[in-house]
């Protein structure tokens, strides 16, 4: 059971973005979201390195090395795009001008604590990038990630064991197995990957889940 592809996770998350939303795309699966804009909506994608109006990836062999996203992948610009320097970019981020940050994660806790910059392993140098600024400054944080680590350990946990990026910031999770809301009463699974049972999902999750009464299969 591998569930959704990385592209499908991105497509599913994009479907929840509203007309007019300003959305920062972080490193990893979130960077793929720029390829998916729901029909009939205008969404302004922000990249921390100084771009508003990120468009889809260029065709293979095209693109400009000075147009990249946080993942350092080539991007295009939408009509209406703007380019600005780093300090202004983080004025937008820290100052609450970004509606939503879509970020990757190493661990997310029941309370929405986010850990995505360090495993605490002294031999593995850490890398924080813009994650702490985004977690502190965006008006909302959603996480897009694989449900478990490569060796199958849960990334959704009761308490993060890795150093935190920020406390109580994650509101929703999109994984290859489910869409899960972080609520005051705990984690609520809203959608499950097609063919996956709730018991299987719970078995791959390191914290107690509730199943929403109106749950449905993920549709992409």
């Amino acid at each position: 059971m591998t569930g959704l592809s990385r592209e499908d996770i991105a497509r599913r998350a994009a479907a929840d973005l509203w007309d007019g939303a300003v959305v920062n795309l972080g490193i990893g699966v979130p960077s793929l979201v720029a390829n998916y804009v729901p029909a009939g909506r205008e969404i302004v994608y922000h990249s921390e390195n100084g771009v508003l109006g990120v468009g889809p990836s260029p065709e293979a062999g095209k693109g400009d090395p000075d147009l990249i996203n946080a993942s350092k992948q080539l991007i295009t610009l939408m009509p209406g795009a703007s380019i600005f320097h780093h300090t202004d970019s983080f004025v937008m981020i820290r100052g609450g001008h970004i509606d939503l940050a879509l970020l990757g994660a190493m661990q997310v806790s029941v309370e929405g604590d986010l850990a995505n910059w360090s495993t605490g392993d002294e031999k593995m140098p850490p890398a924080v990038g813009g994650a702490m600024d985004l977690a502190a400054g965006a008006r909302g944080v959603y996480v897009l990630m694989e449900h478990t680590t490569k060796d199958g350990s849960p990334k959704i946990v009761e308490r993060c064991t890795y150093p935190l990026t920020a406390k109580r910031v994650v509101k929703r999770l999109y994984t290859n197995l489910a869409v899960i809301d972080v609520t005051p009463s705990g984690l609520v699974a809203r959608e499950l990957a097609p063919g996956l049972s709730f018991a299987e999902l719970q078995g791959k999750t390191g914290a107690k889940l509730d199943l929403a009464n109106d749950w449905k299969p993920v549709s992409v």
């Binding site: 921390e48 780093h86 300090t87 970019s89 983080f90 981020i93 820290r94 924080v128 990038g129 813009g130 994650a131 702490m132 600024d133 502190a136 400054g137």
Partner: peptide, 23 residues
């Protein structure tokens, strides 16, 4: 953190003694 890195340099450029950030 990236925004703090940039803002610390901006503070130096702007003649400020520092700043308080939620980051």
């Amino acid at each position: 953190p990236q925004g703090t890195l940039s803002e610390r340099m901006r503070a130096a450029a702007a003649g400020l003694g520092g700043f308080y950030t939620p980051t």
